[in-house]
């Protein structure tokens, strides 16, 4: 250990310097007045608050430089509240600083550690009392108690079981079936290939039979983005190419990374960008990931047209949409 803890001698606390208000009664009077004025400003704030609450209509707007047109009711309500609180604080602090005693005081510390005799007395007590309980001498009680205490925690955990159903196969399923029409979201209009120009996109959902309502749970899995490019721009294997129709290709809009809606489509580069974490997918190569944290391409929905010429799903998604999970089949 260092033998030189403080090479210079401690000169001790600096001498106390009196404030003006301590020696000059006029300065003290002035400080008193200042504190009073601060308190009065707070009173003014409260009055402003009350006036704003009852007197300023919510439909009144005023113009403020920098902020622009602002709601007067909200502004003065807040300003009043802020003033009424802030100036109480300022007054109290100013009072404490100028008029309350400002002599620094010294308080002494003692070590946190208890005295040795207290500590040994404590240890002795624990030993003695534990001995009285006899836990050490009765191993059967000890073991069964351990078992019971260990198991009792199971019941509250079990009680949480009914928080939700088991996932079963739901994460792998969507409402897309072979022949389901693609309808615009919102609007629910079925689309024909001619409705989509080259460079065009459409946000679509599966068409539901009349009477069936679309819930958020459905949208969270079914959302699909329809994109049309020139067919010769595709760079797909024959199977994936057969899932497109005249340059129209459909992808799940739910990001394969963390489930945000991937819909930033750049017509020039044919890239899809997810605004949450910037994963970038190449539409011409079946939404292959070309940048960012996503590890899998967006699932592609096979499409074709039905007898009436509307775009329909050729088959359900062949993989789970959305973020990964442990049981996911990710071949």
């Amino acid at each position: 250990m260092s033998n030189e803890i403080a090479p210079l001698t401690d000169p001790g606390l600096p001498e106390h310097i009196h404030r003006k208000a301590d020696v000059d009664p006029r300065a003290a009077k002035r400080a008193e007045r200042q504190v009073g004025i601060l308190f009065l400003l707070s009173v003014f704030g409260t009055l402003l608050f009350i006036y704003a609450y009852v007197g300023i209509d919510e439909s009144i707007f005023i113009f403020l430089p920098i902020m622009g047109t602002t709601n007067a009711h909200q502004l003065f309500l807040g300003l009043g509240l802020a003033m009424s609180l802030f100036f109480i604080g300022m007054a109290a602090v100013h009072w404490a600083k100028t008029l309350m005693p400002d002599h620094e005081v010294i308080d002494h510390r003692k070590e946190q550690r208890s005295k040795d005799e207290d500590r040994s007395a404590f240890v002795a007590t624990v030993k003695e009392r534990a001995g009285e309980a006899g836990l050490g001498r009765r191993p059967f009680i000890k073991r069964t108690m351990g078992l019971a205490l260990g198991l009792v925690g199971l019941s509250p955990i079990l009680l949480l079981r009914d928080l939700g159903p088991l996932p079963e196969n739901e994460l792998n399923e969507t409402n897309w079936k072979a022949g389901t029409r693609l309808v615009t979201d919102p609007g629910d209009r079925p689309l024909k290939p001619s409705d989509l120009e080259v460079g065009g996109v459409a946000q679509v959902q599966p068409e539901f039979p009349p009477g069936k309502e679309r819930h958020l749970d459905d949208i969270a899995k079914d959302s699909v983005l329809l994109i049309r490019i020139r067919p010769e721009e595709f760079n797909l294997d024959p199977e994936r190419l057969s899932w497109t129709y005249e340059g129209i290709i459909a992808f799940s809009k739910i990001c394969s990374h963390m489930g945000c809606a991937v819909a930033l489509y750049e017509q020039t580069t044919k890239h899809l960008l997810c605004p949450c974490h910037q994963s970038t997918f190449d539409v011409t190569r079946a939404a292959k990931v070309i940048f960012g944290p996503a590890a899998r391409a967006l699932p592609q929905l096979a499409i074709t047209v039905d007898s009436e010429g509307y775009i329909v799903a050729k088959a359900p998604f062949n993989e789970a949409v959305g973020p990964s999970f442990w049981e996911r089949d990710s071949k």
Binding site: R189, K192, Q267, T268
Partner: peptide
């Protein structure tokens, strides 16, 4: 018309009214 990177929203996808 979908200028630059912006995609086209044809009248069937977003009706004139929309």
């Amino acid at each position: 018309t979908g200028p630059q990177a912006m995609p086209v929203f044809s009248d069937s996808v977003l009706t004139p009214q929309e």
